[in-house]
C-alpha cells in the first residue's frame, strides 16, 4: 500500500511489534550508569577478591603435598565442601562488601527519579509500573549475581578442572544449585531492600546512609535484645543473621542461630512484601498535590 504523507507525517500500514521486555532499557541504563562511576568500578572489582582467595584455596587443596608446611595446622580449613563456599559467601565481610557495591550502584535507583520528577517521563511511554520496578530491581540483581553467583559457579568448575575428575560434583551434586539458589535469593532480597530504601528519600546520599543504618542497626538491635531476653529468636531482628540463616539452608550446613530457618525466610519475605507495598504507593506517573 502506498505511503500517504500528511503534514510531514507518514501513515504506516505495518504491524506494530510490541517489545517483549520493556523493562530491559531501564536495567541496561542503570547498569551503564553504575559503571560510569570510577569509585564503583574500583569496589566492584574488589568484590571479586573473595572469589580469588577461594580460588587460591581450591588450588592449594589439590596441591596439599606442595604446600605441606603452609597447611599443616590448617588442613581442616582446606576441606573443599559446601561449608567452604558458605564460609566465603555467607560471612559478614562479604555481605558488607556487597552492600558497598550496591550503595554505589543502587542508592539513586528510585531516589533520583523522585528527585528529578522523572517518573512522568517513564510512564508517558508504554511502560507499566511492573516494568519499571522489574527494570530497576534487575540492576541490583545483576550486580548481586555478578558477585555472588557467577564467580562461585565458576569456582566449582575450577575445582573439577584442578581435580581432573567429577568426584567433587558426585559428592556434592546439589552444590551448584545451592550457589545459584543463594545468589538468586540474595539478588531478590537486596533488590527489594534497595528499592524500598531508595524509594524512602529523594536524596540518594541519604539513602546510602539509610542502607548502612538499617543493616547495622538491625544487628545492634538484635544484639541488645538478645542480651536482654537471652533467647536466640532475637537474632531474627538482624538482617545479617537472617541472611546467614537462609544461606545455611542453601548450602546444607548448620544454621548459626538455634532458630528454624523458616522464620528467617519469613522475616525477609515480610521486608520484601513491605517493599512492594511502598513501591506501589510511591511509583506514580501523576504527582498528587495536596
Amino acid at each position: 500500500m502506498a505511503v500517504v504523507r500528511e503534514k510531514g507525517y507518514a501513515h504506516w500500514d505495518g504491524r506494530l511489534v510490541e517489545r517483549r521486555r520493556p523493562w530491559w532499557p531501564i536495567t541496561r541504563t542503570g547498569i551503564r550508569l553504575a559503571f560510569r562511576k570510577k569509585a564503583f568500578r574500583f569496589f566492584f572489582a574488589g568484590g571479586f577478591l573473595p572469589a580469588f582467595f577461594a580460588l587460591g584455596g581450591l588450588y592449594v587443596s589439590e596441591r596439599l603435598e606442595d604446600f605441606k608446611a603452609l597447611v599443616q595446622s590448617n588442613r581442616a580449613l582446606l576441606r573443599i565442601d559446601p561449608a567452604y563456599f558458605r564460609t566465603f559467601l555467607v560471612n559478614p565481610p562479604f555481605l558488607f562488601l556487597l552492600l558497598i557495591v550496591l550503595v554505589f550502584a543502587a542508592s539513586g535507583l528510585v531516589a533520583d527519579d523522585l528527585k528529578h520528577n522523572s517518573l512522568q517521563l517513564y510512564f508517558s511511554r508504554p511502560l507499566s509500573k511492573k516494568d519499571y520496578i522489574v527494570g530497576k530491581m534487575s540492576v541490583v540483581a545483576f550486580f548481586v549475581l555478578a558477585l555472588a553467583g557467577l564467580p562461585w559457579l565458576l569456582l566449582v568448575a575450577f575445582k573439577l578442572v584442578f581435580a581432573g575428575n567429577l568426584r567433587f560434583l558426585a559428592a556434592y551434586p546439589l552444590l551448584p544449585l545451592g550457589i545459584l539458589g543463594y545468589a538468586v535469593f540474595l539478588a531478590v532480597f537486596f533488590a527489594l531492600l534497595f528499592m524500598l530504601l531508595s524509594a524512602s528519600s529523594r536524596n540518594s546520599r541519604y539513602v546510602s546512609i539509610l542502607v548502612f543504618t538499617t543493616y547495622l542497626f538491625s544487628d545492634i538491635l538484635s544484639g541488645i535484645l538478645t542480651g536482654i531476653f537471652r533467647t536466640p529468636y532475637m537474632g531474627l531482628f538482624s538482617l545479617r543473621a537472617n541472611i546467614q540463616q537462609a544461606g545455611s539452608v542453601f548450602f546444607g550446613t548448620k544454621p548459626p542461630l538455634a532458630v528454624p530457618p523458616v522464620w528467617s525466610f519469613a522475616v525477609l519475605a515480610a521486608i520484601g512484601a513491605l517493599s512492594l507495598v511502598v513501591l506501589d504507593r510511591k511509583i506514580r506517573g501523576v504527582e498528587v498535590i495536596k
Binding site: I209, T213, G223, I224, G227
Partner: peptide, 26 residues
C-alpha cells in the same frame, strides 16, 4: 548497668553518633 552500657556503647557510640555526624558533617 550492663544493659545501659550496651545500649550506650553499642548503639550511641557505634551507630547513632556516627550516623548523625555523617549526615550533618557532610
Amino acid at each position: 548497668a550492663a544493659v545501659f552500657t550496651e545500649i550506650l556503647m553499642v548503639f550511641f557510640l557505634q551507630l547513632y553518633v556516627v550516623i548523625l555526624a555523617l549526615f550533618y558533617g557532610t
